[in-house]
Design a protein around this nucleic acid. Structure first.
Lengths: 165, 165
DNA sequence: TATTGTTATACTCTATAACTATA
DNA sequence: TATAGTTATAGAGTATAACAATA
């Protein structure tokens, strides 16, 4: 079940700690901005961004959203409920599968997204890219993209094992 | 207060999203391992690691710990209380400054740290480094270290503004 | 007066399990 | 029987503000 001696060399340790600290600090900064600018949590922003920017239709099914944002079904139900209550998304039964729920971003949701993004990118520029040279962004993306793809392919995502009774 | 049009180019967007997703998934995986192996949250692990690995004495003051782990004083008090209750650290008044509290890792804390680290590094190897080539770890560390230093130097850390009454 | 740390409190978020309804 | 989503619930974590004690 476990490999032998997989201990990390100093470069790996440095990369790991730097990655976690940078991402943690960046997320903290970004969450503050999103909270101040639009009263959104990072997860809510991710959901809106997924619907408003990634999706061409502005709609996605709950399960697909959960897979993208990585958490439990009930957590997504909770967040989608908050977004719906705020008028930023609507929920309706899926056309093809009566069990499914389709979440759709509203005009208000798009407007809020647009209102929040400038400050968002500004934080990212200031905190993340200011100390980097041109070309570093691409280098970073090239390093991390394969990792992301690998992690996505791994095992357990939102729809983790379901208990049988 | 705001720069003009700091919008992100595609490479920057890609780097940002990849960074956040990789770090998020990695943290999720690592938290599960720490929980299973030692009933530790990631933050608690960070505190133990800071005391047991980074510090030569095994001790640090509360404020310094908070600065390193990035959160509020009260949050640190809460976590330090949990660690103390579990016998993994002790808290005692600082020698030089009567106001201060020195946190020290116990033998049990070091033992738990040692017990947890193999599984921890294994997760990191599997999830983060498996898809990377030799040399990529150093490249990643070289890219992110300046960012981390920059972010650390920025403004608000644990000891954020204190309200006057 | 400023700083260190704790406490009380309220709130957000997440996970588990049970439940309903459709495939 | 399996899957999609919701609900109830309980727990962990965080932030704010007020507070006590020392510098």
């Amino acid at each position: 079940m476990t490999d032998r001696q997989p201990s990390l060399d100093p470069a790996q340790l440095g990369a790991y700690f730097a990655l976690m600290e940078v991402a943690g600090l960046l997320r903290h900064a970004v969450e503050r901005q999103l909270r101040d600018a639009g009263d959104l949590s990072y997860v809510q922003f991710q959901l809106l961004a997924r619907l408003g920017l990634d999706s061409t239709t502005g709609s996605e099914r709950m399960t697909d959203l959960a897979d993208g944002v990585v958490y439990s079904r009930s957590g997504l139900t909770y967040q989608a409920g908050l977004l719906e209550k705020a008028g930023l998304v609507t929920r309706s039964p899926s056309a093809d599968d009566e069990r499914g729920v389709t979440v759709t971003i509203t005009d208000a949701g798009r407007a809020l997204l647009a209102a929040v993004i400038p400050g968002h990118t500004e934080v990212i520029n200031h905190q993340l890219f200011r100390p980097l040279a041109r070309g570093d962004a691409k280098a970073l993306a090239d390093l991390l993209s394969p990792v992301r793809d690998h992690m996505r392919s791994l095992p357990p995502r939102s729809a983790a094992p379901r208990r049988r009774r």
